[in-house]
């Protein structure tokens, strides 16, 4: 009975390990921040790479790009990092695939290059009512002035008569 329990536990452990391993490997490469306006800088980090094995290589692929970026610094939390300047990048989502200095795969991550700032989505239509009020006021004012002139003329004519 004990042997059976041990076997089942071992089988479960191996199964879970197999399931979780790819996820852990994927998590070894990160991009921070994962969303940047075009022209911003992102930091690529391969956590699983040993700096003693040589530079890590980050392959960046996306809408108009397929370039390699070499790591430049040791990451604070372990692994290797590189900065990537996104000036000139086409808007969209990019994939980063990292390879350690010893040739081992270090996982993938994605980041998104977005437009800068907000959306210029207005033309200022509030002038409409203001324009109507101004034009109406001017016309009504002219009419009042005309009416005053007419009344005065009529009074003068009546006095002369």
């Amino acid at each position: 009975m004990k042997a059976q329990t041990v076997l089942v536990s071992a089988a479960l452990g191996v199964g879970l390990g197999t399931l979780l391993l790819p996820a852990a490997a994927l998590a070894e490469t990160t991009v921070s921040p994962s969303t940047t306006p075009v022209g911003g800088t992102v930091v690529l980090t391969a956590r699983g790479c040993n700096p003693k094995a040589g530079d890590a290589l980050f392959r960046v692929t996306g809408p108009n790009r397929d370039q390699n970026v070499r790591s430049t610094t040791a990451a604070a939390g372990g692994g290797l990092s590189a900065e990537l300047f996104t000036a000139g990048f086409t808007l969209g989502t990019y994939t980063v695939t990292a390879t350690c200095g010893d040739g081992s795969a270090a996982g993938t991550a994605t980041f998104t290059v977005t437009p800068i700032g907000g959306a210029p989505a207005g033309g200022g239509g509030g002038d409409g009512a203001g324009g109507l009020l101004a034009a109406g006021g001017a016309l009504a004012g002219a009419a009042a002035l005309g009416a005053t002139v007419l009344v005065r003329r009529r009074r003068r004519a009546a006095t002369v008569a």
Binding site: G130, L132, G137, L139, A143
Partner: peptide, 11 residues
Amino acid sequence: GTAGISLVVAG
């Protein structure tokens, strides 16, 4: 006068 008042009301 009528047009002016109408425009003001519309505004």
